[in-house]
Amino acid sequence: MNPLLEIQGLRTVFRSANGDIPAVDGVDLSVPRGKTLGIVGESGCGKSMLSLSVMRLVPRPGRVAAGRVLLDGQNLLDLSEAGMRQVRGGQVAMIFQEPMTSLNPVHPIGLQIMEAMRAHDTKASNKELRERGLAALDRVRIPAAARRFDEFPHQLSGGMRQRVMIAMALACKPKLLIADEPTTALDVTVQAQILDLLRDLQMETGMSIILITHDLGVVAEMADEVAVMYAGRVAERGTASEIFASPQHPYTLGLLGSVPRLDEERAELLAIEGAVPPPFALPKGCRFEPRCPFAIAACRNAPPPLEEVAPGHYAACIRAPVEHSLDLAA
């Protein structure tokens, strides 16, 4: 079956006095129908900018400089702005990182949900939109939906606001949901509830999900496939089971080594030395080379291509496939 979304050679740049600075640099990804793609990496790796590029919401002076974003075979980058407005919300919806800043503080939440639906159904009456809005709140399991409908964002808890954002995103039954850090700033119990809700709604509607997060525990629980991003590029991608069982890129290995595990006895957690390079000062060769304990001289020559190291498993490392050790200090 053809994937729902295909991203081909996507490159997003920001104009500067010194030329174009890449934030997303030649990304190739696909999202299967009815499945979840998890995108992981540290802050500054390009995860959120990738999602904004797909939605054509890159802030100025940024722009998508190259590539294609195919939704059911249609290139979203070729659409007019009016055509793209019909895609946003109607076919592709997005949950942004912080619901308190995404919701309008001076309007009741119900009015905001109705506004999202009215953008794609101008003929519906206010009564019809209100009924559908209440049904959307019921679907995301908000108690006393009729009362909450007329409340303002500040009257709701963080978990409730996140549920409102999910209700708004799913109000028009999109094919694809992009969830950018949907559990940020939520406590563990509420986080589990939000993830359960997304999973249940996916089973109910058959939508695909792009889940952007830095939390590998969330990825392990939710994702069917995983893409690990570093400095604007995909460092590794494959099925979730392959990525967790046999990581083939040193960066992925470092991320996994930094997660505490109950089934292993370790004196201390792994720390990846250094930081993600800024887009205006990228290394000439492998972008992870300055932080990589496995780097050799050849790693500095040119960026390694993303190559298949096992069936359906790709890594951008000239030393893959190898059996790296989680104990990078050894």
Rank of each mutant, 00 (worst) to 15 (best):
A295F: 01
I166D: 04
P277M: 09
I113T: 02
K123M: 11
R11L: 09
A240Y: 00
D196V: 00
K47A: 06
P182T: 12
P3F: 00
H214R: 12
V322Q: 14
V106H: 09
Q202L: 12
G158N: 11
D121C: 06
Q248C: 05
D180N: 05
A171I: 15
L37P: 05
L111P: 00
A245V: 01
A223F: 07
G312W: 05
G90C: 03
L270R: 13
A169D: 07
T213Y: 12
L269W: 06
D150C: 02
P250E: 01
L306R: 09
P283Q: 03
G217Q: 02
G238C: 09
K35L: 08
A310R: 14
F244R: 10
I95H: 01
T183C: 14
P278S: 14
K47C: 05
E236G: 03
N126I: 00
V322A: 15
F149E: 07
S208F: 08
R300K: 14
R15A: 14
G133N: 05
P304S: 04
F14T: 05
T205D: 11
V64L: 03
L5I: 09
L52C: 03
P105T: 06
G73Y: 01
P99F: 11
N301F: 01
N18S: 14
R33I: 09
R161F: 02
M229C: 07
N18P: 00
Y314Q: 13
T101P: 01
L255G: 02
R237F: 03
P99R: 12
A135D: 15
L134G: 08
V190Q: 04
R88G: 05
A320G: 12
M222F: 08
V219K: 04
R291Y: 10
D28A: 08
V219D: 01
A245H: 13
P250F: 00
E151G: 10
I212S: 11
L256C: 03
F244V: 02
